[in-house]
Design a protein around this nucleic acid. Sequence first.
DNA 1: TTTTACTCTTGATAAAAATCAAGAAGTTAT
DNA 2: ATAACTTCTTGATTTTTATCAAGAGTAAAA
Lengths: 189, 189
Amino acid sequence: MTVLEQYIHSYFGVTLDDISKISSYFQLTTLNKGDYFLKAGQICNKLSFHKSGLIRVYVATEKKEVTQWISTQGYFVTDLAGIMFNKPTKYNIQALTDCELYTIKTDDYNRIGNFIPKWHQLEKLFIARCFTFLEDRIFMLLSMTAAERYKLFFENQKELFNQVPLQYIASMLGMTPETLSRLRKKKLE
Amino acid sequence: MTVLEQYIHSYFGVTLDDISKISSYFQLTTLNKGDYFLKAGQICNKLSFHKSGLIRVYVATEKKEVTQWISTQGYFVTDLAGIMFNKPTKYNIQALTDCELYTIKTDDYNRIGNFIPKWHQLEKLFIARCFTFLEDRIFMLLSMTAAERYKLFFENQKELFNQVPLQYIASMLGMTPETLSRLRKKKLE
DNA sequence: TTTTACTCTTGATAAAAATCAAGAAGTTAT
DNA sequence: ATAACTTCTTGATTTTTATCAAGAGTAAAA
């Protein structure tokens, strides 16, 4: 059983038969460090389950790059506006390290529903879960200080601090690299 | 045609017949000013289309109340974690004015899919739209100063400033009421 | 290896935003 | 109408966070 199959199994109540059907639509693909999964302006036409490596999602504004998210093993990588509404993305999605992904094209993705009746419902639940995740993130940004955001993130994602340039983590937490650096120092003392 | 039917019509490609079927599941309900649609700790078991009035969604922390969202006509009001995953909510949802809502119970909501095959797909698209909306909000909170957030919000929601206590708008934009007050003053000069 | 990029840290300073406190205006209740 | 609440504003001050600048450490490239 692949990690993708394990994921589907643990998050959705689907029969083993359906799991292997679903996962058979996905192809193992790779990205080399620095490669772009998607560039701003493109219309995303694929969905990937993140098997290994690190990926950064960011927006390039005139003034700065804003890291919206850093993906690690176990997340899905895509641009929802692209695969659902065929809209060009504002995000750049780039591999920070060599990566392995299980990837499906939007066309195939949209056909799964024909073979697996429960599919749309599973999709719905999955997106709903993502929605509540973002809700929590907004609450964090609205209500917490930089120090509190750092603490919370650090507790949940310790590993990332050794693997990802800290400036990206800082941006994703809504602070400058200098501020993050000082918070880290203060924590040690 | 009710505003709910108009909404369904404009956002989803559904036949007029299906529209009236869908909307027939919704009942017109009212909230009086101050009434709670939902209180923290409860499991949300309804979904409402907001017809008139104003509703505030907030989290009560030990230190302060954090306004997550202010709903006006045309939005849906619910707690997704409740209706999708049967989880208790952390939100308080309270009427700021007398309100009219088209409301459906979760049980009925979950039955619509039996009568309208496309339903799950519509739901999925609707939630996906909400997801991208939150993505944009996170980007705003990560990348903009208080002044920029105020400006952007003001451009899109001018009306709200006359109808809602400004302290709630301030909280929703991630700033204190004093800061919002000063930004407003500066804008006039 | 040497050079060239990055990345992170640190200090000094400036800017932004929060806090505290008081008072003015407007609402609601009695 | 008066009193009791709220809400908003304003000023003074403090705290938080960003900006600017320089240097140290690391990794990658020539």
